[in-house]
Design a protein around this nucleic acid. Structure first.
Lengths: 156, 156
DNA sequence: TTGCTAATTCGCACAATGTGAAGATTGGGA
DNA sequence: TCCCAATCTTCACATTGTGCGAATTAGCAA
């Protein structure tokens, strides 16, 4: 995903308006590696801009996704997650705390694939499920770790 | 997934009752390659047993899944789909009609994977997205094909 | 700076997909 | 045949989104 400044320019160039709500979401998503849900993003946005609506968060995320600035992910964890990393990559999900990390896979051209009969494949997603190091460590005393506090994980 | 007769035996051996509703679902799922949703299964079950409840379908599918007799799949198509094929395999989904086929992938040990730092991975799912041959053929006149009639795809 | 207007935001209703609970029913062993 | 735990059905409710319309506002033009 581009920087907030670049997105501002892009939006205006496309006849879209740059509202404070959108700018906030640009900032919250830029460099965000937490793969937040709309709800999680709404939560952190609300702290900085009380009164912002969940509807607007959904709307802006959808706009960004349709412009190719971020990817909407269905990782089987219930809600969609949003990823500003638009590189070709995959994901690993912790079954216990729900944490998601980017995973880079190469050498997939060596795979032998059967059963694709006639399908014109245009995308492939690889999803790893497992237990993150932190939960593995914690499982000595409890089955489930509380989710990370910095779930919204702003990095910019 | 085992045969209806074997499942009957298994259920009884585990202190579970074998009701007509369960037997019907055993039959509808056995050999079913359509990857139906609970709703789709409920629809075909209702034709053979009017009055059966959606709740019972969900319940029985959950039972079978927890016994390892079928897999519950989240293919990003909205509802979960159920697959009696418990072999190690993956899936390809048609973006237009929603059809799902089993895909077998080998040679994945040659993949180079980065970013799994510390995660203990216990399952990997590969999901191919594309357009099925039928939709590709039909797209010359319409964008979307109606879903297959035999969506419940009973094979037994 | 002021106005105008289309774009946006917000709030609410509603759709889809499940799950929890409770009362009525029933499978299957004694 | 009886009995009771297991099951089925129904209904309420939770979660995750989307559609719509009234109120607000960004950003261009004068």
């Amino acid at each position: 995903m581009r920087s907030p400044a670049e997105l501002t320019e892009m939006f205006r160039a496309n006849g879209l308006k740059v509202t404070p709500q959108r700018q906030l979401i640009f900032r919250l998503m830029h460099g965000n590696e937490a793969h937040p849900t709309a709800e999680a993003l709404f939560h952190s946005a609300s702290e900085l801009m009380p009164g912002i609506s969940l509807r607007t968060v959904y709307q802006t995320l959808a706009d960004l996704a349709s412009m190719g600035e971020l990817r909407s992910l269905d990782l089987g964890t219930g809600a969609s997650r949003f990823d500003p990393n638009t590189d070709d990559h995959h994901h690993v999900v912790c079954e216990q705390c729900g944490d998601v990390r980017d995973v880079y896979v190469s050498g997939s051209d060596a795979l032998r694939i059967e059963g694709l009969d006639g399908f014109a494949v245009d995308s492939t997603a690889i999803l790893f499920n497992g237990v993150c190091p932190r939960c593995a460590a914690g499982s000595r005393r409890s089955t489930t770790n509380p989710p990370t506090n910095n779930a919204q994980g702003v990095m910019s």
